[in-house]
Design a protein around this nucleic acid. Structure first.
Length: 420
RNA sequence: GCGGAUGUAGCUCAAAGGUUAGAGCACUGGACUGUGGCUCCAGGUGCUGCGGGUUCGAGUCCCGUCAUCCGCCCCA
C-alpha cells in the first residue's frame, strides 16, 4: 500500500522551509514597520461567508471551493482566499469600535479545487494585508509602496506594478451597460470562451488573449471614461501618492479582478518568470463589503501575495542556507556517555545548535557524519583529554585542532578567540 | 471541466520486441581499531507507476487507470 499526498497539495521539506521562514519573517518585519498587525482566522468558515463576499457567479465559488456538510448538515468551506474571513472577524469582534484604520496581515493556507500547474496548487499559501476604515487612496498607495519595499528586500527585480479603477456602485453600471451595448451586435464574432463570458461577466471579455477578439476590442469603451467624479478623483489622487512614494507603475485598463467585492482601485504585480501564472500579488479596494456583511459602512482595501509564486521567483536569485547544527560532539573511548551528554547540554544551553551520535560509532564515522552535516566545529570527548579535564576541538573547514577547557572551546566557537 | 507530454535505482538518465536491466551521483561497510574531505574495494541499489491485452517472448506495442508536469478556463 502506497500513499501519495492529495493532488495539488505538496510537502514543504526542510530544505525549502528555511526559505519560507525567511520570506515570512521579512514580510512580518516590513508589514509591522507600517503598523499592520497579525490576525489569525480559522481555515474553515460557513460557506456563506465566501458565497456572499466573493460572488456567487465567480469561478472560485462555482467550481473551485472545497465545500462539505458537517455532522449537523451545515455547509462548511475551506477558505479559498483570506479577505472574507478577516472581514467576518472584523465585524464579529466589533473591531470597528477601535480607532481607524485597523490594519491586519495574515499568513496561511488557502484551498481551491483547480487543476494544478506551474505556480498553481490546490493548497497554496498567501500573505495578505487588509486595512479598514480609511477611504483615501493613500491606503492603496501605501500598500504598493510596502510591496515595493518587501520585494526590494528580497532582491526581486523586473516586477510590473499595474493599476486600474473599476469604478463604484454608482458608475460601474453605466460602464457595464456600454460594454453590453458594444458587444451585443458583435458577440457572434468572438471566440467561444468570450461568448460564455459575455453571459456571465462581460468585463472578462476585455481580458481575452485571442488575437481576433483583441482586434474587435480595439474600439471598446474604456472604463476610465466612465468613472464618476468621485472615482476619477480617487484614481488621480492615488497616482499622485504613488509618484510621491516613487512607485513606478502602469495603468492597465484591462485588469478585472475575479472577485465581485472590489471597488475603485485594483492592482496586480506580475512577473515574466512564472509562465502562465504571472501574478505574484494582487488586490484592491472593497468599500462596500463590510456593510454588505452586516457591519457599519467601512471603506477598506487589501492585497494578497502568492507564497509559492514568490518562492519560485526567489529561488532563482536568493540563496538561503538550510539550517544546520554548528557543532558536533563526538567521543573517543568507552563509557563516556555521561560526559558527552554533559558537554552537549552545555553548548545547547549556550544556544549553540549541537548534534551528537545516537548510537555507538567509531570516531572515524562520527567525523564522517559531522562532515556530511557540514558542521563547522567538532568537540571530541576523549579518554586522554578527560584525564587532564580538557576536551579536543576541531575546525572542520581548516582542519586545525587543539585542547581546551569547555569554556575556552566555547569562546573559540563564538569567535571570541583568535584560534581558528 | 478541456487539451498535450511524461512515468525505469533515493536522484539525474540509458537500454531501437530478444540473455539474469545498466551508468553517474548519493547511500552502507571495509582498506584506515583516536580524526572527515581524496583514492581503491565490496555491496541493498529495482514488482520498469498500477491493471489488463497482443506475442514464443513486453521496460519497449495496444487499451484502461493513477500520478506528475505544461497549457486552456480562472486565479495568488
Amino acid at each position: 500500500m502506497k500513499y501519495n499526498s492529495i493532488r495539488g497539495m505538496q510537502d514543504i521539506l526542510p530544505s525549502d522551509v528555511s526559505l519560507w521562514q525567511y520570506l515570512e519573517s521579512e514580510a512580518r518585519r516590513i508589514f509591522e514597520l507600517f503598523n499592520f498587525q497579525e490576525i489569525r482566522t480559522p481555515i474553515l468558515e460557513n460557506a456563506e461567508v465566501f458565497l456572499r463576499s466573493i460572488g456567487e457567479d465567480t469561478d472560485i465559488v462555482e467550481k473551485e471551493m472545497y465545500i462539505f456538510d458537517d455532522k449537523k448538515g451545515r455547509k462548511i468551506a475551506l477558505r479559498p482566499e483570506g479577505t472574507a474571513g478577516v472581514v467576518r472577524a472584523y465585524i464579529q469582534n466589533q473591531l470597528f469600535n477601535n480607532p481607524s484604520p485597523q490594519k491586519f496581515y495574515y499568513i496561511g493556507a488557502m484551498f481551491r479545487y483547480e487543476r494544478p500547474q506551474k505556480g498553481r496548487f490546490r493548497q497554496f499559501h498567501q500573505i495578505g494585508v487588509e486595512s479598514f476604515g480609511v477611504s483615501s487612496p493613500s491606503v492603496e498607495a501605501e500598500m504598493l509602496y510596502m510591496l515595493k519595499i518587501l520585494f526590494e528586500s528580497l532582491d526581486i527585480k523586473n516586477l510590473n506594478f499595474e493599476i486600474n479603477s473599476i469604478g463604484c456602485k454608482d458608475c460601474r453600471p453605466n460602464y457595464k451597460e456600454a460594454i453590453n451595448k458594444f458587444l451585443s451586435d458583435k458577440i457572434s464574432l468572438f471566440c467561444n470562451d468570450c461568448q460564455r463570458r459575455y453571459n456571465r461577466n462581460p468585463l472578462r471579455v476585455l481580458d481575452c488573449k485571442v488575437l481576433s477578439c483583441k482586434e474587435i476590442l480595439k474600439n471598446v469603451p474604456q472604463i476610465l471614461d466612465f468613472l464618476c467624479n468621485n472615482c476619477k478623483e480617487h484614481l488621480s489622487k492615488f497616482q499622485k501618492e504613488l509618484a510621491i512614494l516613487n512607485v513606478s507603475y502602469t495603468i492597465n485598463p484591462k485588469i478585472v479582478r475575479g472577485l465581485d467585492y472590489y471597488t475603485k482601485t485594483v492592482f496586480e504585480i506580475t512577473t515574466k518568470m512564472l509562465g502562465a501564472q504571472n501574478a505574484i500579488a494582487a488586490g484592491g479596494r472593497y468599500d462596500d463589503l463590510v456593510e454588505a456583511f452586516g457591519g457599519p459602512y467601512t471603506p477598506a482595501a487589501g492585497f494578497a501575495i502568492g507564497m509559492e509564486r514568490l518562492i519560485e521567483v526567489c529561488k532563482t536569485n536568493l540563496k538561503i542556507e538550510t539550517k544546520k547544527p554548528i557543532l558536533y560532539v563526538a567521543y573517543a573511548g568507552k563509557g563516556l556517555d555521561r560526559e558527552v551528554k554533559k558537554v552537549v547540554n552545555f553548548f545547547r544551553e549556550k544556544r549553540i545548535a549541537t548534534e551528537t551520535p545516537y548510537e555507538e560509532l567509531s570516531l572515524k564515522s562520527q567525523l564522517k557524519k559531522a562532515d556530511r552535516l557540514s558542521v563547522e566545529w567538532v568537540v571530541i570527548v576523549g579518554e586522554d583529554e578527560i584525564k587532564k579535564s580538557l576536551y579536543r576541538w576541531k575546525n572542520m573547514k581548516t582542519g586545525s585542532q587543539g585542547e581546551g577547557t569547555i569554556e575556552e572551546i566555547l569562546k573559540i566557537i563564538r569567535g571570541e578567540n583568535d584560534i581558528k
